[in-house]
Nucleic acid binder design. Structure first.
Lengths: 228, 228
DNA sequence: CACAAAATATGTTATACAGCATGTTTTTAT
DNA sequence: ATAAAAACATGCTGTATAACATATTTTGTG
């Protein structure tokens, strides 16, 4: 992908910038492609790059107790990530990996912080983004802890629909997750993700074909998510 | 409390400001005192005031399913709160109430956003604060979902020690929470908070005298928190 | 293509924790 | 001071979900 094309994609980041600042950004920008399941960064590492997902799908997750992972959030194009830790003067508390082949623009995080101190509109952009993410995290805490297994899985399916959308048929989720990833997203064991998925299919709420998931009744999913 | 005194307390907010900006802040600043258990703001309300806790203790919580509350974070003097929702252009997703008599400085949130657009250092202050809070929220998600009941309670006790410190004797927590609040902080029922607390006391990890909690072995609490 | 490894599926068992009931103590209000 | 309400305490029961076991299917690799 050419730099011109990249700049167009990250316009919400570039719009507030002066031409000079934009050039500075472009000079320091590199583009990498990660393969399916490849690690992008790991918990405990020191953050050096600000990232923007240009194409593909990425998960942000944490290693919990006894090897259980928790998917904290998912990234879709064009979204920014990998900056929180540096802004907080911390190491990464999370890890990131590619769900599928993903193209990522990387800019040294110091370049970004430099631009932030120069450009107030850019600072405001990050204030808003962080505020939205913090709200999502707060919601998620309650949902993951208080809802029952069916409610958590239903919510995850709706969340995936919101995040990555549907295919042309208007009902198949555009992301094909392993049962394990689905479990890690919903805070349950893989076995229970499989079982509950099977139940949903038997109840004609969804239809499953391998990793393809068709949402038959969004209303029912919403109801299960709300109550359970 | 006089405005002079308040300004001194919120110096980390004021330091980046020009004298003119500081005067603008002072003009728009009011101080309220909330009684024990009094609501400060509620879920769904539209945010209008930026707040700073000058003295006392405050909880930020969410109403979960079937009346179960989840305490999301606690505020100590001098910390800022009640600004996330406005920055994200949302209603409050959480509620706030006073654990005990609390004095709170309030500034119209529009005053703050105005100052942020004028003052880059102030914007950076909030970027850092939000980034730290987002990291805490991510950690908390995993801790609350993956740890067992003893681990969650142990963690909460250590968290309260970190947040509010100890009394002069060097081992009594400076905050006296109801068993219900302790349960809401640790994602468990009140019954189980009581039971587990009793167990910890029997194991000589803590000593309880009504709502007073003495930490006898911090190492053991840390171990339980880590493993459980 | 064959083989190993991983992912999916499903049944069984074990257990952590919620839910409920009941009694006691402490706090609050009149 | 006394009644009422709230908080605390503890035992019992039920159940949601983890943990384990064992097939079966799919995927990846030499």
């Amino acid at each position: 992908m050419g730099k011109e094309e990249v700049l167009e994609k990250i316009s919400d980041l570039c719009n507030p910038l002066t031409q000079e600042q934009r050039d500075f950004l472009t000079e320091n920008l590199t583009v990498y492609t990660y393969r399916k399941n490849e690690a992008i960064y790991s918990e405990g590492e020191f953050p050096t790059q600000f990232m923007c997902l240009l194409s593909g799908k990425v998960k942000i997750f944490k290693n919990g107790v006894s090897g259980r992972n928790q998917i904290i959030r998912v990234i879709k194009p064009v979204e920014y990530f990998a900056y929180r830790a540096y802004f907080a003067h911390q190491e990464y508390l999370t890890a990131a990996a590619a769900f599928e082949t993903s193209t990522i623009a990387q800019i040294p995080i110091t370049t970004i912080t430099h631009l932030i101190t120069e450009n107030n509109a850019l600072a405001c952009f990050f204030i808003k983004q962080l505020s939205i993410d913090l709200g999502i995290a707060d919601e998620r805490t309650v949902n993951l802890t208080q809802k029952h297994i069916r409610g958590r899985l239903a919510e995850s399916l709706l969340f995936l629909k919101e995040s990555y959308g549907l295919e042309e048929d208007g009902c198949t989720l555009s992301i094909y997750l392993s049962r394990e990833d689905l479990a890690n997203l919903s805070n349950m064991t893989t076995s229970n993700a499989i079982r509950t998925l099977t139940n949903f299919a038997a109840e004609k709420i969804i239809a499953i074909d391998g990793r393809k998931i068709k949402i038959i009744s969004e209303e029912k999913l919403e109801k299960i998510s709300r109550i359970g």
